[in-house]
Amino acid sequence: MRIHVKLYATLRRYQPDLPRGAALLLAVPPGTTVNQVLQQLAIPDNVPLVTMVNSSVCRLDCVLAEGDTLNLFPPVAGG
């Protein structure tokens, strides 16, 4: 199945060749979780991030479906 992944801010470094603002189109087996996508993108476990699927916050064990968009962005806390 195919999913889209959008990387924001600091996380863009894990797909440096992706045009800015574009979503990455990824072919993954059915049953793939958010965590497996992070591994496929070589994002280390210790990188703090917020994960959302189709605009809803999700956990790392969330199972993705055909056509889902996974948004990955860093925690932002400055003021």
Partner: peptide, 30 residues
């Protein structure tokens, strides 16, 4: 270069929706 804005009503998940109920780091990428 990054920023975020959200209006949170008492019944809304708000920051809990983003960061969950568990412990959170003190700071982010700032």
């Amino acid at each position: 270069y990054v920023g975020q804005v959200m209006t949170i009503f008492p019944d809304d998940p708000g920051l809990l929706g983003l960061y969950g109920e568990g412990p959170v780091p003190e700071h982010g990428i700032e």
